[in-house]
Amino acid sequence: MSPQQSAHPSRWQNWQRSLYRFRQSGLSIAGLCIVLVLLVIAVAGTWIVPFPDHITGGINTAARFKPPSSLNWFGTNELGQDVFTLVMAGARVSLIAGFGVVMIAALLGGLIGALAGYAGGWIDDVLMRLTDLMLTLPSLILAMAIAAALGAGLDNMVFAISMSWWPGFARLVRGEVIAKKEDLFVQAARALGASNSRILFRHVLPNVMSPIIIKMSLDMGFAILAVAALGFIGIGVKPPTPEWGSLLSLARGYLPDYWWTAIFPGLAIFFAVLGFNLLGDGLRDLFDPKARR
């Protein structure tokens, strides 16, 4: 290896080094495995579950409240539906909703933050004061109020949660854009006569993507948690949509005798959040050496 090469490792070498570091961390691997399993369940869910008709609201009153067995791994609920089937189907709902929240929040927050950071002056002042005020508002109550006003439905719930989620992204993106906008390559683009929007979208934003993606992966777990929380309160999705939070909320009434109706949806939320948190931590350690300990 020539000295020049070691001073400027190629992109491929960087990747290999990152991959090595990631593999060294058992927790990151565990997180990745949980997330992969969740993704498989979310995609294949309706084909691999034992009772696909229960997802769409099919019931079997002859088999109400059966404890866990070899036929019904997680038992059955008050309608005789297979809890295992519902929990598996819930993976798709939670992943889509969580991803939707993070995506909308990143787009909206990113746009506001990029505009504030790039424009500066009074636009920056106004947008950032708004962001700060949004951060002081109680996010869960705000999301509940918006979701209730818009009416039941997964899309309304996702929108409501992302309305309280974007300020974090706005602050992050603003900081990154301010740090990048005086860089040489931006000045070069400006000297060549590139328009402001071209500089922002083609030169600045692509260079601040990695912290945004890291925050998205870190937020994914908490977004799933927020979705489940709203479902648990009873605002947002309604049965028969098999959402983990609302499954848990329904099961509350049947404790302690029919504990399996509550424990398994609850554990599903726990593992989903844990998986994304571990994966997000691992990714952050890869891309942000300062956060590594």
Binding site: A228, F232, R252, P256, W259, A262, F271, L274, N277
Partner: peptide, 23 residues
């Protein structure tokens, strides 16, 4: 502590109820 951050408060609350109040 990693598990604690991922644990939903409402689920933990139910489990606590199930163990210390109901059982």
């Amino acid at each position: 502590s990693l598990a604690s951050i991922a644990m939903p408060r409402f689920f933990l609350a139910l489990v606590l109820q199930l163990i210390f109040a109901m059982s």
